[in-house]
């Protein structure tokens, strides 16, 4: 009996230590990046263009590029994503075709991001002639995040209680009136959370953007959707892949800015989720 009991305790401690080790790794990663890059983070860093000299390098072009890219990605992906989720949850017949579409969406969500780069390169850059513009980048990224938005929105819509739909139907409304008037507003916080997380994934994405040939040296801010661009992760990659130690530190500074933005977005998503949970409890 005693040895069994000890095994139990030992296992518990091991599992506990392992779990907190993971947190330790996260802390270490943040600490390392902070130590390396903090000295380069300044207002100049935010407002300078990239330069041959590490101390004069900045992320102005990358910040604006990322901003435009996410904005356009959202414009492309959000309507299609929500429409798909609504259709699958509220209107679609339950048949083989719909099972296939579901399977397909799940598979797309697991497809490596670099594969979407091929699609962007052939379809948007060359096929439709958008060249290496923001439109090409955003269109590619929106295809990448679409499955994520669909899956999150479906979960949110699934969470809307059946009683709410019944209440609406009992008043003699059509399915669409019920969907737009009751189901979507109720599911909106969940949908928003999903969208924010998907867009923050898009913000950190590098590989497909490299594949569509986004320039790594851009010394201007994009003026419109057809302009060339660079993004924060691309700039970080560019600096990190140089041999000089100083540029690694500039890269770390870029990472600090990127992570701060991502954490802000994630925090916003968390707040939305917490607010709704409170509301439901009442």
């Amino acid at each position: 009996m005693i040895s069994r009991h000890h095994k139990d305790i030992f296992f518990k401690r091991t599992a506990q230590v392992t779990t907190f080790l993971c947190l330790g790794v996260l802390a270490l990663l943040l600490y390392h990046i902070g130590r390396e890059g903090m000295s380069y983070v300044s207002l100049d860093f935010l407002s300078n263009f990239p330069s041959r000299f590490p101390e004069k390098s900045g992320i102005k072009a990358a910040l604006w590029g990322s901003f435009w890219l996410i904005l356009l990605t959202g414009i492309f992906a959000i309507p299609i994503g929500i429409a798909t989720a609504v259709y699958l949850e509220e209107f679609a017949p339950k048949n083989r075709l719909m099972t296939l579409i579901e399977l397909n969406i799940n598979n797309l969500a697991g497809t490596p991001s670099i594969v979407f780069g091929f699609l962007g390169l052939v379809l948007f850059v060359r096929g439709l002639g958008f060249e290496r513009s923001l439109i090409s980048g955003a269109a590619t990224l929106s295809l990448l995040v679409l499955p994520m938005i669909i899956i999150a929105a479906r979960e949110a819509i699934k969470g809307v209680p059946r009683t709410l739909r019944e209440a609406a139907f009992a008043l003699g409304v059509t399915r669409w009136q019920c969907t737009i008037g009751q189901v979507i507003p109720t599911a909106l916080p969940g949908i928003m959370t999903g969208i924010i997380l998907a867009l923050s994934r898009a913000m950190g994405e590098t590989a497909p953007i490299i594949m569509i040939g986004a320039l790594t040296y851009v010394a201007f801010t994009p003026e419109g959707p057809l302009d060339e661009f660079t993004t924060l992760p691309i700039q970080i990659y560019n600096w990190a892949s140089r041999p000089q130690e100083e540029f690694h530190q500039v890269s770390a500074a870029g990472i600090i800015v990127l992570l701060l933005m991502l954490f802000t977005l994630n925090f916003a998503a968390l707040l939305i989720r917490m607010r709704t949970e409170k509301k439901v409890k009442l």
């Binding site: 779990t19 996260l26 270490l28 390392h32 950190g204 590098t206 990190a240 992570l259």
Partner: peptide, 24 residues
């Protein structure tokens, strides 16, 4: 508390991990 914190690990962009691997 722990689950969302651990999920942060998968939300960090992969280029950041590349940097971490290379420099740390």
């Amino acid at each position: 508390f722990l689950k969302p914190v651990l999920e942060i690990l998968s939300g960090i962009p992969t280029v950041v991990y590349g940097y971490f691997a290379l420099t740390f």
